[in-house]
Amino acid sequence: MMEARVQRRVQRYGWDLAAADYERLWQSQLERAQTRLLDCAWPMRGEHVLDVACGTGLVSLAAAMSVRPEGHVTGVDISGRMVDRARIRAKERHVSNVSFQCMDAENLDFSDGSFDVVLCALGMMYLPDPAKALREMARVLRPGGRIALAVWGERERCGWSGVFPIVDAEVASDVCPLFFHLGGEGTLALECSDAGFGSIEEYRLDTTLDYADADEACRAAFIGGPMALAWSRFDEATRAKVWRRYAASIAKWRHGRGYRVPGEFVVVRAMAPAAVRSPVRSTLEKATP
């Protein structure tokens, strides 16, 4: 297992490389999970929201629209280039009640009880110690505050998951050693319970990742995602080889020139310690055809 310090560095460099292509290749693919996340958190006018692992601000800006004008959203991410891109997007969209900082999710530099809502959309899988990050999120939430988290689901339900062994065969990347661990039935909900959260609800959402052609699908996997660092170090022959292997691994989901690759999201919502606790509920949801 890669040591935590090295894993954080790999994530920072990898997402720095992916920042320029992230929105083009992934914004539409992640929209269903992000929409459900915001619906679960229900940020309201005047509230203060923390978006952990905010990336280029896709969720942060949407939350800022919900809490304006009195409220504020703070987005944090380990990648400086992701944060820079988020600031540019906020300026372009004239959203003034949002700010972004470079910060490690496991060491949040905020006072206790600073936020009404904490969000983390598809960031928990990349953390060396997600349990520590959850304890930090609990700490910075006010009593009774709300948290909403989204992760990828079961490996077997994510058709693009073949990218990991394909890359690992070429380099000891260990990019995401526990990537699908939190997607197991009830796993993320249990982690929230262990961190002291209550009123936990879990939702499982089937989805598809739609690509215009093999080129777009491969670019999303290797250039706009967590494999970007490994890709940057491959020579041309290795790039061509992994490109072919990944395209072959998703061939069964080809529709004409395009691809409809299956995926699964898990979204969990909960309340901060001191809120009333209730049993975990799990709901399976199917994507609209």
Rank of each mutant, 00 (worst) to 15 (best):
residue 175 V to L: 05
residue 42 W to P: 00
residue 120 C to D: 11
residue 12 R to V: 09
residue 171 V to A: 05
residue 130 P to H: 08
residue 154 E to W: 08
residue 84 D to T: 11
residue 205 L to F: 04
residue 60 S to V: 03
residue 46 G to A: 10
residue 163 V to E: 04
residue 258 G to R: 01
residue 200 I to L: 05
residue 53 A to H: 02
residue 42 W to T: 13
residue 127 L to R: 06
residue 257 R to M: 12
residue 189 A to F: 00
residue 124 M to K: 10
residue 208 T to F: 14
residue 65 M to A: 14
residue 255 H to I: 15
residue 224 G to S: 07
residue 27 Q to F: 11
residue 107 N to C: 05
residue 101 Q to G: 06
residue 155 R to S: 09
residue 210 D to V: 13
residue 28 S to Q: 15
residue 16 D to L: 12
residue 49 V to L: 08
residue 175 V to F: 01
residue 57 G to V: 00
residue 134 L to K: 05
residue 195 A to T: 12
residue 109 D to W: 06
residue 11 Q to C: 02
residue 97 N to Y: 00
residue 92 E to N: 13
residue 104 D to M: 10
residue 249 S to Q: 03
residue 112 D to T: 15
residue 289 P to T: 13
residue 179 F to A: 06
residue 289 P to W: 14
residue 288 T to Y: 01
residue 125 M to R: 02
residue 220 A to W: 00
residue 19 A to P: 04
residue 80 G to T: 01
residue 126 Y to Q: 07
residue 268 V to W: 00
residue 44 M to F: 05
residue 265 F to R: 03
residue 59 V to N: 02
residue 155 R to N: 02
residue 3 E to Q: 11
residue 61 L to C: 05
residue 254 R to T: 05
residue 67 V to Y: 10
residue 121 A to Q: 03
residue 191 E to S: 07
residue 96 S to Y: 02
residue 77 D to R: 08
residue 275 A to P: 11
residue 103 M to V: 11
residue 85 R to N: 03
residue 188 L to V: 00
residue 170 E to R: 15
residue 223 I to S: 02
residue 201 E to L: 05
residue 205 L to Y: 05
residue 32 R to A: 13
residue 188 L to P: 09
residue 58 L to G: 01
residue 39 D to E: 14
residue 71 G to W: 12
residue 238 T to F: 01
residue 185 E to W: 08
residue 183 G to Y: 04
residue 6 V to D: 14
residue 61 L to Y: 05
residue 70 E to C: 10
residue 88 I to G: 13
residue 190 L to E: 13
residue 85 R to A: 04
residue 230 A to P: 08
residue 16 D to E: 09
residue 131 A to V: 10
residue 83 V to Y: 01
residue 147 I to Y: 06
residue 121 A to P: 07
residue 161 S to P: 02
residue 19 A to Y: 00
residue 91 K to L: 15
residue 215 D to C: 12
residue 197 F to M: 11
residue 230 A to N: 07
residue 137 M to L: 08
residue 246 Y to N: 06
residue 146 R to M: 08
residue 207 T to M: 06
residue 239 R to I: 04
residue 189 A to V: 04
residue 238 T to K: 07
residue 271 M to Q: 13
